[in-house]
Design a protein around this nucleic acid. Structure first.
Length: 838
DNA sequence: GCGGACTGCTTACCT
DNA sequence: ACAGGTAAGCAGTCCGCG
């Protein structure tokens, strides 16, 4: 009998079996357990066995192991149906090779009669065995599994807390309890090692191409989470050694005369690593090593690396590529609040660890061995620290998302949030004996969107924004709906199968502002799953992440769980409106925003009925001017009773300055902190000169306490504006403070429709031999003359177009001046005789 | 052949 | 490969104008 935490499932093409990988914390090793149940790849069809046999040719028929009749519930038709389950030898027979079942069905226009054929076999295996990644199992000699269930006292407390919920919505209650157990269980601290390699390059500034692997690997470093460090160095006659002794204090150093020997040694290390961590290892380090090894004549059997479609995996352990994980938009935005902008090792580690890569003054190939080793070691250290900082936040996040999505750790780090949610939904369909629907069937049955978007080119109508009341408003309370869209999905029973259901009795349950209705007889699966995730977050993990009575460690644990849930919940609405999502359902997506619009408008009306002005609102919030406490409480209770959606007090401002512009305001909290939304002065591309001027104004605004104090503040602001205007006119500034910084979102040659200014500047740089790539930020100055722009590095002070900067200063300040009822032109005194006559 | 009105493209932001 | 809505600036086009 062995014990281990399940980390993933793979398919072994040679053994023709699913292989589960468990991690045993005592021995710090990976246990590979092959399937012992005789599970085979399969897909489903509503054709009979005889019909299928007519469709498939002899070659596939030989690969078909069996036809079985199965009964599943079709959620779209709301009835049980019989299907033929076609079991085959190898997943490629389902799809992925010539004359696979899918290909044949497609060719014969029978795609509509095929189901569950697009699911990866490793996931199919997880569904059928109800496996939970990240959970601990007992593994018997024969390979059978048993979950280690740890009952703890917490569960009882939990049940008490939710007795009410149990009566009101038992299905959600049941799932919430499951999530609670799953997410509170112990998370293993997996022993892991980071790897980084350096490669010789004969050309300056050229990164070697992994597929060709033409040049030697000259260094490799390995750093474990237990601070074991190893440096492998290739001796080269052409470079100096430097102080090699200094390396030995920091790591075990190994020298090699032969590159082949060194690579062999790296492979020996990899074979003993349960979890390998790299930064971009899928696309560089591992393919380079694999191809280089083959080139050097190392036997394929000695190479513990396996090339996948968009991954490189290792044996027997697992490989996580952190680049892909940090590159994930949801992770970047919701887990790390956009603290890094580009997912490079340097930017991510600088932002999260306050420590970046070693800056090089020379080319990699010219460094002394000492410098090379230190550079390479730092990269591995950073990569490892990204998984260990903050008590292993990143590792825990990955494992928690695995638990929720039921995907292996390797898949979680390589896919986006829509793949996570899709997999969870697939798993839950299978668990309940429901047919996993084809995307086309959902669209065919439920149709496209019926509302019209405000922005042309979008698919349906989104949120409403209550127009801001221009001016300065003192004593403002902002109310918001707690995670509005997930709450609506839960409380309005929204799911692909419940929208516009077949039962005529449900037609009265209309979605406002749309022709849609929602089923009143059965709970929707997406509604139950997202609803229970929402409940467990809002009711338990979020408050417990802030609970002062808990030890800090405990709070931090809850915080990570809360964050993992947030990442998934924040996407729950968005994926339903994304064509690429396999449960894409426009009527559901537009119903969510429609209920949202209805809600905010009703709250606004009610607030005004109760004598409180709503001065602004966006999607899920209302800004209330001078609301008495009592009225706020009554209003919130009214909303909760009438719509069963929770409202929270989001923030309280001493005052808010609004212009007519939406998504554009400045608010000052009671403690004087300033909240800036959408203003140009805050945007990252605004020149520092303008930004500084703007923030000088913000500082003054933060000090204003009463309406009387505004008089003085207005004078000071006018002073700043005059000063800055004169500084521009007299050119008393640094050139670089006038540079706009704009990012390239695509390669230069893909700007074919128009040529924006930053692209013009970038092209000038490229001509000078500068390497320009997507994601690069271009620094440019607005200049006089026909082109109107030059890269910062090529501009002389005399070329600046001062008038353009006065314009930028004007628009930046106007966004606030409008609220203060001040006029920029009057302030700088350009209301001269001339403008008078015009 | 020039300038204003307009539309479209691009980036950065908000919820 | 989660969504829609807004602000702003510039590029490019159309149209009028003896």
């Amino acid at each position: 009998m062995e014990r281990g935490f399940l980390l993933g499932v793979n398919y072994d093409g040679k053994e023709k079996k699913a292989i589960m990988k468990f991690y045993n914390p005592e021995k710090e090793i990976i246990l590979k357990v092959a399937d012992s149940t005789g599970h085979r790849p399969y897909c489903l069809t509503d054709l009979t066995k005889e019909e299928v046999q007519k469709v498939l040719d002899k070659e596939i028929q030989q690969a078909v192991l069996s036809f079985k009749e199965v009964t599943l519930f079709d959620t779209l038709l709301n009835k049980k149906r019989k299907f033929t389950k076609i079991e085959v030898e190898d997943p490629l027979w389902i799809s992925g090779r010539r004359n696979s079942i899918r290909e044949v069905f497609e060719r014969k226009k029978l795609s509509a009669h095929l189901w569950e054929d697009k699911i990866k076999y490793r996931n199919n295996y997880i569904y059928d065995h109800k496996l939970i990644i990240g959970e601990e199992y007992l593994i018997s000699e024969s390979g059978s599994l048993k979950r280690v269930e740890k009952e703890n006292g917490k569960n009882e407390k939990w049940k008490n807390l939710f007795r009410e919920e149990l009566l009101f919505d038992p299905e959600v209650y049941k799932e919430t309890a499951n999530w609670f157990k799953l997410l509170s269980a112990t998370i293993p601290n997996i022993t892991r090692t980071a790897l980084d390699i350096e490669v010789f390059s004969p050309k300056v500034g050229r990164i070697p191409y992994a597929k060709e692997a033409n040049y030697p690997v000259i260094a490799a470093t390995l750093v474990s989470n237990k601070s074991e460090r190893k440096i492998f160095l290739l001796k080269r006659v052409s470079v100096k050694e430097g102080n090699l002794e200094s390396l030995k204090e920091r790591a075990k150093v190994y020298f090699f005369n032969s590159e082949q020997e060194m690579i062999r040694e790296i492979f020996n290390e990899i074979k003993n690593i349960p979890l390998l961590v790299t930064f971009n290892g899928d696309n560089f380090d591992l393919p380079y090593l694999a191809h280089r090894a083959e080139k050097l004549g190392i036997n394929r059997k000695e190479i513990p690396l396996k090339e996948g479609k968009d991954s490189f995996k290792i044996e027997p352990g697992l490989h996580l590529d952190l680049y892909k994980f940090f590159h994930n938009r949801s992770i970047q935005v919701y887990a790390f609040s956009e603290r890094y902008r580009n997912a490079t090792l340097d930017e991510v580690s600088t932002a999260l660890l306050s420590k970046g890569k070693i800056e090089l003054e020379e080319e990699i190939s010219q460094l002394t061995l000492e410098q090379l080793a230190k550079y390479c070691l730092r990269d591995s250290e950073l990569t490892m620290e990204l998984t260990t900082f903050n008590d292993g936040l990143v590792m825990n996040l990955i494992i928690l998302i695995s638990k929720i999505s039921r995907l292996s750790l390797e898949d979680v780090t390589r896919t986006g949030v829509s793949a996570w949610i899709r997999n969870l939904l697939n798993y839950e369909h299978r668990k309940r004996g429901l047919l996993i629907p084809n995307s086309e069937d959902i669209i065919e049955k439920k149709g496209e969107a019926k509302t019209k978007s405000v922005i042309q080119g979008k698919k349906y109508k989104g949120a409403v924004i209550i127009p801001p009341a221009e001016g300065v408003h003192f004593n403002v309370t902002v109310l918001d709906f707690a995670s509005l869209y997930p709450s609506l999905i839960k409380s309005r029973n929204l799911s692909y199968e419940t929208i516009n259901c077949n039962d005529p009795g449900c037609r009265g349950n209309k979605v406002p502002d749309t022709p849609h209705w929602v089923c009143t007889r059965r709970r929707g699966l997406i509604s139950v799953l997202m609803g229970s995730l929402r409940d467990v977050r809002v009711r338990w993990f979020k408050p417990k992440s802030k609970a002062k009575d808990l030890p800090v460690k405990e709070r931090e644990k809850n915080k990570v769980i809360q964050q993992a849930l947030k990442v998934i919940l924040n996407a729950s609405y968005g994926v339903l409106g994304a064509e690429t999502f396999s449960y894409y359902c426009p009527p559901v997506a537009e119903s969510i925003t429609a209920y949202g619009r209805h809600l905010i408008i009703e709250v606004m009306k009610e607030s005004q009925r109760r004598g409180i002005k709503v001065i602004y609102g966006d999607t899920d919030s209302v800004f209330l001017e001078k609301p008495p406490k009592k009225v706020i409480e009554e209003l919130m209770r009214w909303v909760e009773e009438k719509f069963s959606i929770d409202m929270d007090i989001d923030k309280i401002y001493r005052y808010v300055a609004l212009s007519k512009r939406k998504k554009n305001y400045i608010g000052v909290y009671l403690d004087g902190t300033v909240d800036i939304k959408g203003l140009i002065g805050k945007k990252k591309n605004t020149p520092p000169f303008i930004k500084t001027a703007f923030y000088e104004m913000v500082e003054i605004l933060g000090k204003v306490k009463t309406e009387q104090e505004f008089k003085e503040a207005k004078k000071e602001i006018q002073k700043i504006i005059k000063e800055k205007y004169l500084a521009l006119k007299n050119k008393t500034f640094n050139l670089e403070d006038l540079s706009f910084k704009v990012s390239l979102t695509k390669p230069l040659n893909r700007y074919t429709k128009t040529t924006p200014q930053h692209v013009k500047a970038a092209r000038m740089l490229e001509k000078k031999g500068v390497n320009i790539e997507p994601g690069d930020t271009i620094n440019f100055i607005k200049t006089k003359g026909k082109i109107g722009v030059k890269p910062l590095s090529l501009t002389k002070k005399s070329e600046i177009d001062i008038d353009k900067y006065v314009e930028t200063l004007k628009t930046t300040f106007e966004q606030v001046l409008d609220a203060l009822n001040l006029d920029f032109d009057e302030i700088i005194g350009s209301k001269t005789l001339e403008s008078f006559f015009n």
